[in-house]
């Protein structure tokens, strides 16, 4: 990064490097400032608010409440469980699909990608209510199943964790697919041919060559889905019917229950720490997977 002082004979070049260096630093300033003002400062403010009590004095009461009240522990647990289940569904549905799509010829690939991206432009709210229409007691699915004589009484499909995870998977799957497909597309086809020419079966080649080479994309998709799922609000609120309490809903309720921002800020701070922990863990995992060779 930092340019070493150049020998005297090449002074003009050194000068050129120096101006480039300074200009580069100046050029980066607006971006740094934006991040500082709009991301860093609000986060610090959040932390500050979380250690103030109702009267505005410094206090740990907002954090004490998180420990004392059993509901917070459970809500964090539920949020992580729901996010984990969503990731799992994305992996199970997404990896085979992405593997198939990655090998498609360009025109078909473009069409399928458009189909994958299309749901991203549909409103979150509309999709949640659409699932409700399908899953509720007198909804499409239950009516059909009953008409066909497959079930006697309607199944409890809506307003539970199942509906929540289903709705969230629907929303997160394209986000998982994007990095995964892109990684799979860039796998060198010659390596697969080499593997097969050496007598490996198709499955063996897929599992020991193709998947490991796509792992960076899969991992990126997994982390993206997990972290985004932790902050979901609308989908669990509508499809969970109050039976799936997640952190973001609790933050909103704390805002209306307590007259100061401290209570919700404290939950936000803890969630932020959890997200950083997950990111850190994934970084470690990535290093481990690449055998430490990736270090530059």
């Amino acid at each position: 990064m930092v340019s070493l002082p150049a020998p005297d004979s090449r002074a003009p070049l050194a000068l050129h490097r120096l101006t480039g260096f300074v200009l580069g630093r100046i050029g980066v300033m607006p971006a740094l400032l934006t991040v500082g003002v709009f991301v860093l400062l609000p986060c610090l403010w959040l932390v500050w608010l979380s250690v103030l009590d109702r009267s505005g004095a410094l206090s740990g009461e907002n954090y004490a409440r998180l420990i004392e009240q059993a509901s917070y522990r459970r809500i964090f647990l539920i949020t992580f469980r729901v996010s984990f289940e969503t990731v799992l569904c994305c992996l199970v549905l997404g990896i085979p699909f992405a593997s198939y799509v990655a090998k498609l010829p360009p025109r078909a690939f473009g069409l399928v990608m458009a189909a994958v991206l299309f749901p991203l432009w549909t409103s979150l709210l509309v999709r949640a209510y659409a699932w409700l229409v399908i899953l509720q007691r007198n909804g499409l699915l239950n009516t059909w199943l009953q008409d066909w004589g497959l079930i006697d009484a309607p199944l409890p499909l809506a307003f539970n964790e199942f509906a929540t995870v289903l709705g969230m998977t629907h929303i997160m799957l394209p986000i998982f697919l994007l990095p995964t497909i892109s990684a799979m597309r860039s796998v060198d086809g010659n390596l697969l041919k080499a593997s097969e020419s050496m007598g490996a079966s198709g499955l063996r080649t897929y599992l020991s060559v193709f998947l490991p080479l796509s792992l960076s994309g899969i991992l990126a998709g997994t982390i993206l889905v997990f972290v985004m799922s932790l902050g979901f609000y609308v989908t669990p609120a509508i499809l969970g019917g109050g039976n799936v309490q997640v952190i973001s809903m609790r933050i909103a309720r704390s805002l209306s229950t307590y007259s100061n921002f401290g209570a919700s800020s404290a939950i936000g701070v803890v969630l932020l720490i959890c997200v950083f922990a997950v990111l850190g863990l994934s970084l470690l995992l990535r290093r481990r997977l690449s055998g430490g060779k990736e270090t530059k």
Partner: peptide, 15 residues
């Protein structure tokens, strides 16, 4: 009593 009762209610709901 709102604050206190709400906490208790949340505990009950998530139990």
């Amino acid at each position: 009593n709102n604050d206190h009762v709400r906490e208790l209610y949340e505990n009950m709901m998530t139990e």
